[in-house]
Protein backbone atom coordinates (compact mmCIF):
# COMPACT_ATOMS: atom_id res chain seq x y z
CA UNK A 1 0.00 0.00 0.00
CA UNK A 2 1.58 3.20 -1.17
CA UNK A 3 -1.07 5.60 -0.01
CA UNK A 4 -1.60 6.17 3.69
CA UNK A 5 -5.22 5.73 4.63
CA UNK A 6 -5.82 8.73 6.80
CA UNK A 7 -9.10 10.56 7.14
CA UNK A 8 -9.29 13.70 5.03
CA UNK A 9 -7.96 16.39 7.38
CA UNK A 10 -10.45 19.08 8.30
CA UNK A 11 -9.46 22.32 6.69
CA UNK A 12 -9.08 24.17 10.00
CA UNK A 13 -6.69 21.55 11.35
CA UNK A 14 -4.42 21.60 8.33
CA UNK A 15 -1.26 23.28 9.49
CA UNK A 16 0.62 24.86 6.70
CA UNK A 17 3.74 26.90 6.57
CA UNK A 18 3.01 27.60 2.94
CA UNK A 19 2.40 31.08 1.66
CA UNK A 20 -0.95 32.72 2.42
CA UNK A 21 -2.03 36.06 0.99
CA UNK A 22 -1.26 38.71 3.56
CA UNK A 23 -2.66 42.21 3.78
CA UNK A 24 0.17 44.47 4.96
CA UNK A 25 -0.15 46.17 8.33
CA UNK A 26 1.80 49.20 7.13
CA UNK A 27 -0.06 51.43 4.65
CA UNK A 28 1.27 51.88 1.12
CA UNK A 29 1.62 55.61 1.74
CA UNK A 30 3.66 54.98 4.88
CA UNK A 31 5.83 52.43 3.06
CA UNK A 32 6.60 54.78 0.17
CA UNK A 33 7.38 57.51 2.70
CA UNK A 34 9.94 55.31 4.45
CA UNK A 35 11.51 54.02 1.21
CA UNK A 36 13.86 56.99 0.51
CA UNK A 37 15.46 56.59 3.95
CA UNK A 38 16.53 53.02 3.20
CA UNK A 39 17.48 53.63 -0.45
CA UNK A 40 21.03 52.52 -1.33
CA UNK A 41 23.75 55.06 -0.68
CA UNK A 42 27.41 54.92 0.19
CA UNK A 43 26.90 54.86 3.95
CA UNK A 44 24.42 51.97 3.76
CA UNK A 45 26.63 50.07 1.32
CA UNK A 46 29.54 50.29 3.74
CA UNK A 47 27.29 49.33 6.64
CA UNK A 48 25.98 46.32 4.67
CA UNK A 49 29.51 45.16 3.88
CA UNK A 50 30.42 45.52 7.55
CA UNK A 51 27.39 43.53 8.69
CA UNK A 52 28.00 40.81 6.12
CA UNK A 53 31.58 40.44 7.21
CA UNK A 54 30.67 39.43 10.76
CA UNK A 55 28.64 36.24 11.13
CA UNK A 56 26.97 37.07 14.45
CA UNK A 57 26.08 40.58 13.29
CA UNK A 58 24.67 39.27 10.02
CA UNK A 59 22.53 36.71 11.86
CA UNK A 60 21.26 39.41 14.20
CA UNK A 61 20.49 41.70 11.27
CA UNK A 62 18.69 38.94 9.35
CA UNK A 63 16.48 38.14 12.36
CA UNK A 64 15.64 41.81 12.76
CA UNK A 65 14.76 42.05 9.07
CA UNK A 66 12.73 38.84 9.25
CA UNK A 67 10.83 39.96 12.35
CA UNK A 68 10.02 43.47 11.17
CA UNK A 69 9.08 42.56 7.61
CA UNK A 70 7.06 39.57 8.81
CA UNK A 71 5.10 41.81 11.18
CA UNK A 72 4.51 44.51 8.57
CA UNK A 73 4.13 42.57 5.30
CA UNK A 74 4.04 38.84 6.12
CA UNK A 75 7.55 38.59 4.62
CA UNK A 76 8.73 35.04 3.86
CA UNK A 77 12.40 35.97 3.39
CA UNK A 78 12.81 35.15 -0.28
CA UNK A 79 15.82 37.43 -0.05
CA UNK A 80 14.87 39.35 -3.21
CA UNK A 81 12.35 41.88 -2.09
CA UNK A 82 9.71 42.85 -4.65
CA UNK A 83 7.84 45.22 -2.32
CA UNK A 84 9.02 48.50 -3.93
CA UNK A 85 7.39 47.44 -7.23
CA UNK A 86 4.18 45.90 -5.87
CA UNK A 87 2.53 48.65 -3.87
CA UNK A 88 4.33 47.20 -0.85
CA UNK A 89 2.18 44.06 -0.75
CA UNK A 90 4.29 40.90 -0.76
CA UNK A 91 3.72 38.64 -3.80
CA UNK A 92 5.55 35.79 -2.07
CA UNK A 93 2.54 35.46 0.24
CA UNK A 94 0.52 34.40 -2.85
CA UNK A 95 0.02 30.60 -2.64
CA UNK A 96 1.45 30.41 -6.17
CA UNK A 97 4.15 32.99 -5.33
CA UNK A 98 3.36 34.86 -8.54
CA UNK A 99 5.71 37.82 -8.99
CA UNK A 100 4.04 39.30 -12.09
CA UNK A 101 0.43 39.82 -11.12
CA UNK A 102 -2.69 37.89 -10.17
CA UNK A 103 -3.67 34.50 -11.56
CA UNK A 104 -6.98 33.96 -13.32
CA UNK A 105 -8.61 32.27 -10.35
CA UNK A 106 -9.35 35.36 -8.26
CA UNK A 107 -12.91 35.21 -6.94
CA UNK A 108 -15.58 37.71 -7.96
CA UNK A 109 -15.12 39.54 -4.66
CA UNK A 110 -11.33 39.70 -5.06
CA UNK A 111 -10.71 36.71 -2.80
CA UNK A 112 -7.79 34.28 -3.15
CA UNK A 113 -8.81 31.05 -4.89
CA UNK A 114 -6.78 28.94 -2.47
CA UNK A 115 -7.70 30.82 0.72
CA UNK A 116 -11.15 32.27 -0.04
CA UNK A 117 -11.28 33.88 3.42
CA UNK A 118 -8.43 36.20 2.40
CA UNK A 119 -8.18 38.85 -0.31
CA UNK A 120 -5.85 38.06 -3.22
CA UNK A 121 -2.54 39.75 -2.44
CA UNK A 122 -2.36 41.04 -6.02
CA UNK A 123 -5.76 42.69 -5.69
CA UNK A 124 -4.38 44.30 -2.54
CA UNK A 125 -1.19 45.27 -4.39
CA UNK A 126 -3.14 46.78 -7.29
CA UNK A 127 -5.36 48.81 -4.97
CA UNK A 128 -2.36 50.10 -3.02
CA UNK A 129 -0.36 50.93 -6.16
CA UNK A 130 -3.34 52.72 -7.72
CA UNK A 131 -4.05 54.71 -4.55
CA UNK A 132 -0.48 56.00 -4.40
CA UNK A 133 0.09 56.65 -8.12
CA UNK A 134 2.37 53.67 -8.67
CA UNK A 135 0.20 51.63 -11.08
CA UNK A 136 2.92 51.68 -13.75
CA UNK A 137 5.14 49.61 -11.42
CA UNK A 138 2.81 46.67 -12.03
CA UNK A 139 3.83 46.72 -15.72
CA UNK A 140 7.44 45.91 -14.84
CA UNK A 141 8.48 42.39 -15.76
CA UNK A 142 9.74 40.60 -12.68
CA UNK A 143 12.60 38.23 -13.46
CA UNK A 144 12.68 34.70 -12.02
CA UNK A 145 14.12 34.73 -8.53
CA UNK A 146 17.25 32.96 -7.28
CA UNK A 147 16.11 30.25 -4.88
CA UNK A 148 19.53 30.08 -3.26
CA UNK A 149 18.82 33.40 -1.58
CA UNK A 150 15.91 32.26 0.63
CA UNK A 151 16.45 33.23 4.27
CA UNK A 152 19.12 35.72 3.37
CA UNK A 153 18.82 39.48 3.81
CA UNK A 154 17.21 41.38 0.97
CA UNK A 155 18.32 44.71 2.45
CA UNK A 156 22.01 43.78 2.48
CA UNK A 157 21.70 42.73 -1.16
CA UNK A 158 19.76 45.85 -2.06
CA UNK A 159 22.24 48.23 -0.45
CA UNK A 160 25.11 46.56 -2.25
CA UNK A 161 23.39 46.69 -5.62
CA UNK A 162 23.05 42.93 -6.00
CA UNK A 163 19.32 42.91 -6.81
CA UNK A 164 19.41 45.71 -9.40
CA UNK A 165 18.05 43.41 -12.13
CA UNK A 166 15.12 41.90 -10.26
CA UNK A 167 12.67 43.70 -12.53
CA UNK A 168 12.69 45.69 -15.77
CA UNK A 169 11.41 49.13 -16.63
CA UNK A 170 7.77 49.05 -17.84
CA UNK A 171 8.43 48.00 -21.43
CA UNK A 172 6.13 47.51 -24.41
CA UNK A 173 8.65 45.23 -26.13
CA UNK A 174 10.26 42.08 -24.78
CA UNK A 175 13.22 43.10 -22.62
CA UNK A 176 16.30 40.93 -22.22
CA UNK A 177 15.52 38.01 -19.93
CA UNK A 178 18.91 36.38 -19.81
CA UNK A 179 21.46 38.63 -18.20
CA UNK A 180 24.83 37.29 -19.15
CA UNK A 181 27.71 38.98 -17.36
CA UNK A 182 28.55 41.05 -20.43
CA UNK A 183 24.95 42.01 -21.13
CA UNK A 184 24.13 42.94 -17.54
CA UNK A 185 22.96 46.51 -17.17
CA UNK A 186 22.78 47.45 -13.50
CA UNK A 187 20.78 50.43 -12.41
CA UNK A 188 17.71 49.47 -14.42
CA UNK A 189 15.59 48.73 -11.39
CA UNK A 190 14.84 50.84 -8.33
CA UNK A 191 14.75 54.00 -10.39
Amino acid sequence: MLTRTVAEPLEEFVRTDGPRPTTPRLSARGSYRIAPYVAPRRLLRRLAALIEGRGWLRRLFVSAERGSKWALYGCRMCGQCALPATGYACPMTCPKQLRNGPCGGVGAGGECEVYPDRPCVWVTAARRAQATGHTADLDRLQRPIDHRLWDSSSWLGYWQGRDADLWTAPAPQRPQLVLLPVLSSPGQAHD
Binding site: G104, E113, L141, Q142, P144, R174
Partner: peptide
Protein backbone atom coordinates in the same frame (compact mmCIF):
# COMPACT_ATOMS: atom_id res chain seq x y z
CA UNK B 1 0.42 29.23 -14.15
CA UNK B 2 -1.81 26.22 -13.50
CA UNK B 3 -4.47 25.46 -10.92
CA UNK B 4 -3.22 25.04 -7.37
CA UNK B 5 -2.78 21.37 -6.31
CA UNK B 6 -5.26 22.09 -3.52
CA UNK B 7 -8.06 21.70 -6.10
CA UNK B 8 -6.86 18.46 -7.64
CA UNK B 9 -6.75 14.78 -6.84
CA UNK B 10 -3.43 15.12 -4.98
CA UNK B 11 -3.95 18.02 -2.57
CA UNK B 12 -0.91 16.75 -0.60
CA UNK B 13 1.41 17.53 -3.52
CA UNK B 14 4.20 20.08 -3.39
CA UNK B 15 3.29 23.08 -5.49
CA UNK B 16 6.32 24.10 -7.52
CA UNK B 17 5.61 27.51 -9.12
CA UNK B 18 9.33 28.16 -9.65
CA UNK B 19 8.41 30.54 -12.50
CA UNK B 20 5.10 32.29 -13.13
CA UNK B 21 3.25 32.24 -16.44
CA UNK B 22 4.69 35.58 -17.56
CA UNK B 23 8.25 34.52 -16.78
CA UNK B 24 7.61 31.24 -18.64
CA UNK B 25 6.25 33.12 -21.66
CA UNK B 26 9.30 35.39 -21.56
CA UNK B 27 11.54 32.33 -21.30
CA UNK B 28 9.89 30.53 -24.25
CA UNK B 29 10.39 33.58 -26.49
CA UNK B 30 13.97 33.95 -25.26
Amino acid sequence: TGDHPRFGDHPQAKAVFDLDSIQLTWLART
